[in-house]
C-alpha cells in the first residue's frame, strides 16, 4: 500500500517535470520584464497627470475654499466619460492617436499612451477622495495661521492625505497590471500577451497558468508593499 503510493508520487513527479520542460522560462522572464516596464512607466505618468487633476477636482469641489461648480462639473464629466469606456475599447479607439504620438500602436511603446489615458481619471478620483478625507478643521487652522490656499494644499492637505495617496497609488498599480495584461490582446507584450499567444492560441494551458500565477504574485506583492507604506505613514 505504502509502496504503491510512493510509486504514484514518483510517476506524478515525472509527469510534472515533463510538463515544465515545455515551458520556456526565458520567455516568461522577458514577459514579466515587459509587464513591469509598462506598469512602471504608465504608473509614473498616471501620477504625474492624475495627481494635479485630483487636486483640481478637490479644490474646485463643493464646500472647498475654491469651489467652482461649473469647472468642477465639466472636469468631472470628461473624466467620467473616459472612465465609462471599457479599457479594451479605449485601446482600439485611441489607436490613431497612439500612432500619432508614439509612431506605433504595438509593443510597450504603443500601449503606454492608452494605459495612461485609461488610468489617470481613475487615479484622479482616488486622489480627490483621499484629499476629502483630510479633516476640514486642519484646512481651517492652516488658513487661520496665515497660510495661502496654495500653501494649505501643499503643506497641510497633501501631507495629511499621504496614507490615502499611497493607497490610491497601490490600487492604481494593480489596475495597471490588469490593463497591461489586457493590452496583450492587441499586441502590447507582457505576461498577458504571452498567456494569450501560448496559452490560448497554442493550447499550452500550462503557460497561461504560470502567467496567471506570476500575475497573482505580482499583485500580492504590490498590495503588501502598499499596505506596509500606508501603515508606516499613518500617524492618526
Amino acid at each position: 500500500m505504502a509502496q504503491s503510493v510512493a510509486q504514484n508520487m514518483a510517476a506524478n513527479a515525472k509527469g510534472i517535470s515533463m510538463w515544465f520542460d515545455r515551458i520556456n522560462w526565458a520567455d516568461i522572464g522577458t514577459a514579466l520584464g515587459q509587464t513591469l516596464t509598462m506598469v512602471g512607466i504608465s504608473l509614473s505618468l498616471t501620477i504625474l497627470i492624475g495627481l494635479p487633476l485630483g487636486i483640481l477636482l478637490f479644490v474646485t469641489g463643493k464646500g472647498q475654499p475654491f469651489a467652482r461648480p461649473i469647472g468642477y462639473g465639466a472636469l468631472s464629466f470628461v473624466l467620467n466619460i473616459i472612465r465609462s469606456v471599457p479599457f479594451i475599447i479605449l485601446l482600439i479607439v485611441l489607436m490613431p492617436v497612439t500612432v500619432l504620438i508614439t509612431g506605433t500602436s504595438l509593443g510597450i511603446r504603443g500601449v503606454i499612451f492608452p494605459l495612461v489615458v485609461g488610468t489617470s481619471p481613475f487615479f484622479a478620483r482616488l486622489v480627490e477622495t483621499a484629499l476629502r478625507e483630510v479633516d476640514r478643521g486642519v484646512i481651517e487652522a492652516s488658513l487661520a495661521m496665515g497660510a495661502s490656499p496654495a500653501q494649505t494644499i501643499f503643506r497641510a492637505v497633501l501631507p495629511e492625505a499621504l496614507p490615502g495617496l499611497i493607497a490610491a497609488v497601490t490600487v492604481t498599480a494593480i489596475v495597471l497590471v490588469d490593463y497591461t495584461a489586457m493590452s496583450g490582446a492587441i499586441g502590447g507584450g507582457g505576461l498577458g500577451d504571452l498567456a494569450i499567444r501560448y496559452g490560448y492560441h497554442r493550447f499550452q494551458t500550462e503557460i497561461m497558468l504560470i502567467c496567471v500565477v506570476v500575475l497573482i504574485l505580482l499583485v500580492q506583492l504590490i498590495q503588501a508593499s502598499g499596505n506596509s507604506l500606508v501603515t508606516r505613514f499613518t500617524r492618526r
Binding site: D135, G137, A144, G146, S148, P159, E160, R235, R236
Partner: peptide, 22 residues
Amino acid sequence: ALSDLRRSIGMVFQHFNLLSGR
C-alpha cells in the same frame, strides 16, 4: 494683508486641528 492680519491673530480650536503627520 490678509495673511499678515491672520498672523497677528492666533486661533485655538475645539478639536485642536493639529497636523497628524507632524
